[in-house]
Amino acid sequence: MNIFRFLGDMSHILSFLLLLHKIVGGKSAAGISLRTAEMYAIVFCTRYIDLLWNFASLYNYLLKLLFIGASLTIVYFMRYGPSQKATYNADEDAFPVQYLIAPCAVLGVLINQDHSSPFEMVWAFSIYLEAVAILPQLFLLQKQGEVENLTSHYVFALGAYRALYLLNWMFRFMTEPDYQQRIVWLSGLVQTALYCDFFYHYYQSKKGGLNKSVKLP
């Protein structure tokens, strides 16, 4: 464990707390993509299936449970919460996720760390899917133009988590002799790159004060 990875995990937890605060606390799903929320639930339920046999550390174990629980809770409230359904904009949340899930599934089968292990295929699928899972959310924000304050912090924290993981991988690559995770590194790079435009606009709007809403052209 290094500081970059720890901060990355804390940023990831923060993104969940912000989203849960908005959807469960604020009873509003305005500006939130259910498609992204569902893809994240798939990412965690597939990647953390090793909860059943892998106890790398208590820290990992607890956070895996937290991420699966939080992502399923968010999907549940967005699908069945009366006031969440009323504020969720299904027409605008229209990114064709089948064009993301299918290629990731093919890639997961073709490119993974052990072609004889179904778990490795599923695990690689979840890594690839996470890289593109934010697209429906960014697509929705782009369509709406204006990003509500809490939503902008949620997206920022979610983007920052993987950016911090990139620093964590660089640190581990420099300090651990034979450490390499090409699948995760490349996917994490793509994932963070997708946020660059949002990061830019987030920075532009927040430097005038944290409560200004983010405007996307």
């Binding site: 990875r5 995990d9 990831h12 090793d50 892998n54 790398a56 550390s57 990992n60 956070l63 895996k64 991420f67 993974n112 760390q113 052990d114 072609h115 490795e120 695990w123 993981y165 964590n168 450490y179 390499q180 995770q181 090409r182 699948i183 995760v184």
Partner: peptide, 10 residues
Amino acid sequence: PEEEEEKDEL
């Protein structure tokens, strides 16, 4: 295929 790395990250 790459040798299997332990999955010690989230």
